[in-house]
């Protein structure tokens, strides 16, 4: 009977070819790191992609994000409960409240101050608007109003304009703002600063001034009462007006029976007299001549 020789029938200590190759692969630079880091990353990325490829998972995820955001945004610290509007007339306040419909309380996360500022500044009466959320949940809106400088009349509309010609508001009737000068004519609104200079130059006759009319979108006529007109040139109308004013000061030009002072050619001022005045002039000339002839 032979005893089994355990010592010599031990397992072969040599690694198998594949075990050897795997071991060598594991010792290859970057392979362990790739396996330790790359494979988990790849698996998690793939699983994430799989999860998000299902629409219901996507909506659930976005809902969850929105819910978290809502719980934070709706904390009382972030809520805005009222709005104050400063430096605005009652009319403008009402306008602003109309175009900024806000249902308080609202979270300050949901307020887009820049967009609101743009909306408010689109109002013609507003030159500039500053918005901020004050501590205490108050939305503060500081408005700089646009001040009307002239009344502009054009066919079918009557409006208030500021010094730069920007529209401020519509006007029902001229008499409401009798304190403001009147300009008229198509294209007059684009030359408001010049019109204001003309008004300043027409100081001596301001009580007779009815308004300034833009003629053919290129030059000004100054309309006085008694249907008198001063027709100004395209270029340097202010200087031309000042010359007329000087004539008026010296010779009471405009007190006379004139229909128009035509300064369209600045080198040659022309007076247009009324028919009666012409007849009178002829008669006077006739008498003078008759005296000489007689």
């Amino acid at each position: 009977m032979q005893q089994v020789d355990y010592r010599n029938s031990r397992r072969d200590p040599a690694p198998s070819r594949w075990a050897y190759r795997m071991h060598r692969l594991w010792l290859t630079p970057y392979v362990p790191r790739l396996l330790r880091l790359g494979v988990p990353v790849a698996i998690s990325a793939l699983s994430l992609i799989y999860v998000f490829s299902q629409p219901e998972n996507r909506t659930a995820f976005t809902d969850m994000i929105a819910e978290i955001r809502r719980t934070v945004a709706e904390r009382p610290e972030f809520m805005v409960t009222s709005m104050t509007i400063e430096n605005a007339s009652e009319e403008l306040t009402a306008d602003i409240k109309e175009i900024l419909p806000m249902d308080f309380p609202i979270s300050s996360f949901d307020i887009d101050l820049v967009a609101m500022q743009k909306v408010v500044e689109q109002l013609d009466a507003v030159a500039r608007a500053d918005l901020r959320v004050r501590p205490g949940g108050v939305l503060e809106l500081a408005v700089t109003e646009r001040l009307p400088a002239v009344v502009w009349r054009a066919p079918g509309l009557l409006e208030l304009l500021d010094g730069q010609g920007r529209r401020v508001a519509a006007l029902e009737e001229r008499g409401r703002r009798g304190d403001l000068p009147l300009i008229a004519g198509i294209g007059a609104d684009t030359e408001v600063p010049e019109a204001l200079k003309l008004y300043a130059a027409a100081g001596p006759i301001v009580d007779r001034l009815r308004g300034i009319v833009r003629m053919g979108e290129r030059r000004w006529d100054i309309v006085l009462d008694r249907d008198q007109r001063i027709m100004l040139p395209e270029d340097n109308p202010v200087i031309a007006l000042e010359r007329v004013m000087a004539l008026h000061e010296a010779q009471d030009l405009l007190e006379r029976d004139l229909a128009a002072v035509d300064m369209r050619n600045p080198d040659r001022a022309t007076l247009r007299m009324r028919p009666d005045a012409v007849a009178n002039l002829h008669m006077i000339k006739g008498i003078e001549l008759g005296d000489i002839l007689q």
Binding site: D12, P13, A14, P15, R17, Y20, H23, R24, L27, T28, P29
Partner: peptide
């Protein structure tokens, strides 16, 4: 070949490089 494999694998394991 097996004996070489055994020795090489053990030495590589100790060295930690391929």
């Amino acid at each position: 070949e097996r004996a070489i494999r055994t020795a090489v694998q053990a030495a590589q394991k100790m060295a930690g490089v391929r």
